[in-house]
Design a protein around this nucleic acid. Structure first.
Lengths: 335, 335
DNA sequence: CTGTTAGCGCGTTCAA
DNA sequence: TTGAACGCGCTAACAG
């Protein structure tokens, strides 16, 4: 590859002049600049981002760590991050922690070693506080995406899970459901905990006893499944709400195994849900996460933080939309 | 951040010794090495990947350009690439071309400037040959993923689209379908062309006249939709096969608009398809791309090419699986 | 308006 | 077994 010296020689100028026309960082006479430009195309010169970054100690790149590259919601977030990143002239370095704390630690290390200008941790595992604290010195700005930890001093982007679940629940209660089974999953995950909070909050608001309902929490899929099956076997539950796509898969499987149809036998709603949901039956009532926009917002927060390293951390919550579909319609109580 | 000099000073050795214990590149006496190791933990030193890369002219990173980060198949491929990359100690730099030739060119430029050790172009637009040819000098190994261009001198990874479509079609013919509508889409895309080839090949093999069937090609969604609607309106077609997920969406929408049910009125099958397809009706007969494995294979090819820069390019085709489901079952001709 | 030069942090000869 | 010193390609003082 041609280097700046080659260009300089060919244009009969110094390397600093070449650098300056490249970066537009000081005035260069018309003719001189043209000579440089010609030399550049003639030699096929391309700026070496590595050397440049080393010298400026800025890589113009950001790191994204996601906890589960398998989920579709990830794709949307990553897509949003990538989109916004190029918009700001930033390159995206991607890593996947696979919900594994150790891998996450390694991923962050790698990205830090690569000197990314900023870090976005999307749905990071426990987001082990020690992890980032341990890198006290000169650690770049960090944005937490999707899972919000109010106690941590970072900029964060999430959705208004609590509010949305509250609305969803109130509507189900209006429809006459008195025994709802909520598959809440691992409530150590902020997103899921917020959703469950929204549920209990709605019950309080409507004056319904929590004891009438089935709240199914836990980390283990098998346990969750059998807990749900027990709830369904009681014959009480007339509605099931799943807190995420994996939990919806689990719940729908359990429903099918129990021979229950949606929505004839039981109503169903889920967070996140499935792509192209309206093409298939049952058409599921779904809370759509603005995943793409969340990715964009994270980058936005990041570049602002880059400009203003100080100032207290901000938390941005994006509004979710509830797509009401057939799965919550056939209930007698419906208008 | 602490640098090698800090470590060296603290361990009372030279920087070269530090470097050598770091990389295990020459013998260092037990005690000396221990002093260095201690100094490293004491200072919290971390190797600067930038400087290291500049010096070794190897970044231990690879670039991945995808044409549509929105599609789920992308997520799976990227996931596979990321997985295999870390396995080989490589970092993944991601870019999205959004099916735009210009953006693709820019993305490749950026990655090249970043000196990635290799490049994977996943489902790249037209893969404009000039694009990569233009970077004749010292361009890193390039792997083409998903879309195979037999005429291009690159290592490539794809699926056996032709073979799979042939099998699928023969089975439909066996079931008694005499008028199949194939939504083939943009046949400039190798993947789609291969699938269409498989269709005509099966007809030839079975001795069926191509003229009896409806082959719907084109770039414009609206045109495709109206062509399909016309084919359906004729009342002839008893089966519809879609060449990709977007085409399946288009086809299913058109079927619904025409008031046709799957599979009662018309059989349906698609390539790629939808996640969790077995939880919903209609359960679609689907050709599952081994997307994750394709990503892994691409990295595999890449590291081998890194080891052996010369040698003729290889093309790897991974086997696809047909998941037969309800959407092709209800036809009278079925066994 | 332009040129000279000192590093950014590391790997790697060459000498000892 | 260890150290000194050069340079990867670039930006940014500083000098003219």
């Amino acid at each position: 590859m041609a280097t700046m010296v080659d260009v300089a020689r060919r244009a009969k100028v110094s390397v600093s002049t070449v650098s300056h026309v490249l970066n537009g960082t000081r005035n260069v006479e018309r003719e001189t600049r043209q000579r440089v430009l010609d030399a550049i195309t003639a030699t096929g010169y391309r700026q070496d981002a590595l050397a440049r970054a080393l010298r400026r100690s800025r890589t113009d790149s950001i790191g994204l760590v996601v906890s589960d590259a398998g989920e579709p919601a990830f794709a949307a977030m990553a897509h949003g991050v990538e989109h916004a990143a190029v918009e700001h002239g930033l390159t995206l370095v991607l890593a996947n922690s696979a919900e594994d704390v150790e891998r996450e630690r390694k991923a962050v290390q790698t990205l830090l070693n690569r000197r990314v200008d900023g870090l976005i941790l999307a749905r990071a595992a426990e987001s082990d506080p020690g992890l980032v604290d341990s890198l006290e010195d000169e650690k770049p700005p960090i944005i937490l995406l999707d899972r919000i930890f109010p106690s941590l001093p970072f900029d964060q982007v999430g959705a208004d899970n609590r509010e949305t679940m509250r609305t969803l629940t109130l509507r189900l209660l209006e429809q006459g459901h008195r025994h709802v089974a909520v598959v809440a999953g691992d409530t150590r995950v902020p997103t899921l905990r917020e959703r469950l909070d929204g549920f209990t909050s709605a019950l309080l608001e409507a004056g319904h006893p929590l004891g009438d309902h089935h709240v199914i929490t836990g980390t283990d899929d098998d346990e969750l499944r059998s807990a749900l099956q027990a709830a369904l076997a009681s014959g009480e539950a007339t509605a099931v709400v799943a807190g995420s796509t994996p939990l919806a898969v689990l719940a729908l499987t359990a429903l099918a195994a129990a021979g229950l149809r949606v929505p004839e036998d039981v109503a169903f709603a889920t967070f996140d849900g499935f792509d192209n949901s309206d093409l298939f039956r049952p058409q599921l009532t779904t809370v759509r996460q603005p995943a793409f926009d969340m990715g964009v917002a994270a980058v936005q927060l990041l570049v602002e933080r880059l400009r203003t390293p100080d100032g207290s951390p901000r938390t941005v919550r994006l509004r979710q939309r509830i797509d009401w579909r057939e799965s919550t319609e056939a209930w007698p109580g419906t208008a």
